[in-house]
Simulated assay, not measured.
Amino acid sequence: MKDKAISLLKQLTEAHSVPGYEDEVRDIFVEELSGAGQLSTDKMGGVYCERGVGPKVLLAGHMDEVGFRVQSISLDGFLKFLPVGGWWAHTLLSQRVEVKTQSGEKILGVISSRPPHFLPDSQRSKVMAMDALFIDIGAESRAEVEAGLGVNIGDPIAPVSAFTPMAKRDYYLAKAFDNRVGMACAIQTALELLGEELPNTLVSCGTVQEEVGLRGAKVAAAKVSPDVAIVLEGPPADDSPGFPKSECQGKLGGGVQIRMQDPTAIMNPKLVELVIATAEEEGIRYQVTMRSSGGTDAGSFHQANEGIPAIVLGTPARYIHSHNAMIDLNDYLEMVKLAKALVRKLDAETVAKLTRYL
């Protein structure tokens, strides 16, 4: 289980898959789950693996990561860019990125700005605005960028950051743990349940464009019409300096997060109770969270169709939406255990009780 987790997370975090261009993560999903169920896609690019009979249980991770796109190319060969998803400008200067051309080639670049040596004192201490940044790919002209390197307006741009073990055992540093931990869990859970007869129809899913408004989840809900949605995420940890320890709900090493509420969704209370009870019964380490900011695909799922009971399971990650996020692998492994235990429990009667109000 652990070796498979490491292999999956390395492949997925190092993939180049920003909103609207999730192809590399989708390819990994298809390769891993070929033969594990009926594979299909929706018309936005979401991908599905379905098997079984009974109520539909959706295990959904989103495939996209925060990234950028080429907005314009200057006459002297520098790229202006637009963020796709939520970036904090503090994290960007001097970071490496790759521009993926229409031919599939990846062009290395670095996010840059006017050097501080040439700035007045009043500007040196301020964070550079996003529109003051540019990407340097080592070109000398627009013609070299377009004709020589094949880079064009609209090309997607992703951070460059290798999946790297840290000195502390089971700690890893990489980009895009939001949400490659969720995608890994959707894949690994389906693989580890192979050979078991399930009391439901299991649909593992990779949605698209979560980082720009939970868009792909709307399409996934319409396509699958799930009876329950288990959203798998890489939410922000809150155990680093600057947070009160007494209020920490996302500690690395604290286990899988079970999210009860955020601004986009109030989770089905009966489903929350079932998830917590299951974790207790199985001896799975968990931490319950109530969030005043942020959101997940549950925001779209719980409002879709006639209403879909939804829950969010998460592997907390420090410094998400940056080039270097950090997880404790054991939290991810607890998420997989809980996802498997829930799938085994969600038979027709259990699912029906979640929305029985009369």
Rank of each mutant, 00 (worst) to 15 (best):
E65I: 04
M1N: 04
K270C: 04
A341V: 00
V208G: 01
A317M: 08
K245G: 09
K106I: 07
Q188L: 15
S34I: 04
E247D: 13
I28A: 02
S94L: 06
A158Y: 01
S293G: 13
V97I: 08
V272L: 09
L198Q: 06
Q257A: 03
V57Y: 09
A222V: 14
G37F: 13
V312I: 12
Q102F: 00
G37C: 13
G182M: 02
G195P: 11
A143S: 13
A60Q: 11
T164V: 12
C49Y: 15
S141H: 11
V208Y: 00
I311Q: 03
D76P: 08
D64Y: 10
F243G: 04
T264I: 06
G206M: 06
R169P: 00
R114A: 04
S103C: 04
A167T: 13
L75A: 12
V57G: 04
S204Y: 14
L33G: 02
H302S: 09
P244R: 13
E144L: 13
G294P: 09
L92S: 05
P83N: 12
K223E: 11
I284N: 05
I327T: 11
Q38N: 10
A298P: 01
A89F: 02
L342E: 10
M335G: 03
V30D: 03
K100A: 03
M128A: 14
G254S: 06
T189C: 14
M183R: 00
P55N: 09
T315V: 15
I153G: 03
L232K: 05
G54P: 00
